[in-house]
Design a protein around this nucleic acid. Sequence first.
DNA 1: TTGTAGGCGTTATCAC
DNA 2: GTGATAACGCCTACAA
Lengths: 352, 352
Amino acid sequence: MSIQSTPKKSSAGSGRASIADVARMAGCAPVTVSRRLNDPKLVSPEVVKAIDEAIEALGYVRNESARALRSNRSLLVGAIIPTLRHSIYAEMLEGLQNTLAESGFALIHNTSDYDLDEEFTQARTLIERGVDALVLVGTRHRAKTFDLIKARNVTSVVTYALQSDFGLTSVGFDNRRAAAMAADRLLDLGHTRFAMIAGHTSNNDRARARVEGFVEAIAARGLKAEDVLVVEASYQIGEGRAAMEKILAQKPDVTAILCGSDILAIGALYECRRQNIEVPRRLSIVGFDNLEIAAYTDPPLSTLDVPAYEMGCEAANYIIKTEPGKQTIKKVELHVQFIERQTTGPAPDRRV
Amino acid sequence: MSIQSTPKKSSAGSGRASIADVARMAGCAPVTVSRRLNDPKLVSPEVVKAIDEAIEALGYVRNESARALRSNRSLLVGAIIPTLRHSIYAEMLEGLQNTLAESGFALIHNTSDYDLDEEFTQARTLIERGVDALVLVGTRHRAKTFDLIKARNVTSVVTYALQSDFGLTSVGFDNRRAAAMAADRLLDLGHTRFAMIAGHTSNNDRARARVEGFVEAIAARGLKAEDVLVVEASYQIGEGRAAMEKILAQKPDVTAILCGSDILAIGALYECRRQNIEVPRRLSIVGFDNLEIAAYTDPPLSTLDVPAYEMGCEAANYIIKTEPGKQTIKKVELHVQFIERQTTGPAPDRRV
DNA sequence: TTGTAGGCGTTATCAC
DNA sequence: GTGATAACGCCTACAA
């Protein structure tokens, strides 16, 4: 009864031409059109030609939803990052997206603003959307987030991280070691009175690892952890400035400061300028990230170069190579480099 | 053979529980589960409870692909931006994503790197994916891109633009007028010898409009267009620096410079510092964008504040409010503000 | 308030 | 090399 009324099922509901419309026009079966689209070798040249013409004439575009439904692959990847306002995450995302796009994947992103519950909700939504893979930032996540990923067996990558004890592939660098590199360099320059302007460490394992790495490396050289004054700030220039002000008030004899981000370092430099504190003559400052701007501050900022874009690319590569449902846990370590510019110098007491 | 083995169709192919599994467990029909998900009012409390328990027990998550296929709405929005490396676009994207998420839309983005053909390809891919709406940047696009949008009748918004003569809704500000604001202020300060460090104007209508607005506003005050030396550069600090060097070589008596972006202005400031040129004593510089850093340069940068995040929000609002296939063309104008900090001052000849 | 009966556009499977 | 058929999981009608 119902079927007879639509003998030639056309682009009825959607308004879009379907594979069936193309098939009818090209004088073949729908399957053949599907084959031409997915594996042209299986179709004879003449038929391919007829199909292509029909596609052109009808302005046919494939319906990915149907494809995803039937084949159970969405070619969609979800990424949840803290924020796009830090270019470091924007770059990671760009690397991810560019690399994924080459293999036909599209990227959906959400920003959690460092809220782990929000992150869980977003992960759920992304999985509802049928993403084939999920990209997260850092090691700290709600248990239910991990549970969800495991229950659904969604290919997942954690960036800015190197642990794999929670059972996910990670792509990143060693924040602890990076901070230690800065510490070692400053120690070699004779510094003994340190401070650090760190990002907030609650809910941010990267920020915490940097603090730990810095303090531990200093302690390893016989100094006490108390020799390091740590002030936390959110990643904004103004906050970096205020933190610097606080440090100078609390510990006026400080000579070396590591900042958890170049943004914070820029704030610190600003405050030094304001207080007429010569950098690096009286105070050495090291940033973190190696943003474009770091080479152009006054003086140019010594910092740690973080492979943000590459992390995105590596995460994408893992996703592309992984068969759905068959992930093997890997750890991809990228390297951080200390870039010495002109905000670091010998400790003032040594200089004399 | 194959079918009989699964008389009660379970989560067979996908591995995920379906609405049918939930229904079986809750002792109701699939439709009822669907209703509970979409409009809980229609289902009695006890049934809701049973369904919720089943959902919980099975770890059910809805399949958006099926939903999209059936309802012909993907709740997916595509955005194509030039690059994420300019925080101005990242901010727009963040506003877009945050606002869309509140209404259940997810955002897919691509970066075209200012390549209009690439943009077309991406638009096509996004439409294949069934996006309910498309967000583009600027007014310049390939004719085939417009054709595609019209053919598919996809709700579309153009950001950073205010024209609507190409038949799409636009959300933006008047680049021409913004640049003119800067020109007027500089003219009021007595400047007569101008230059501009502009972004590349081919394929970038925003950059072009800024140049035109600047030159025209100066011409409107009786000066000649030749009085403005325009140098193009891509949006990188190093390029801004080089452009500044070039300007100082070609037109050493220049006293006022508008930069097409704060990034370029930072490069210009850097070069001034290098050449010991006092800003704003000898030279006034105006940026564009009002990035976070602008308030912390030395001296703090006078610039034009661009409502990037808000543009994203407004674009999202339009999309959310628009019924699929029923778009009405609108023009949402946001306002630009001249932020006077300390890189602008009276023309040196006036000062004497 | 709940259930029955399709079908959205595609691809997997099996036949020719 | 090509085609017929049956799902994929959900939702819109309509019926009870």
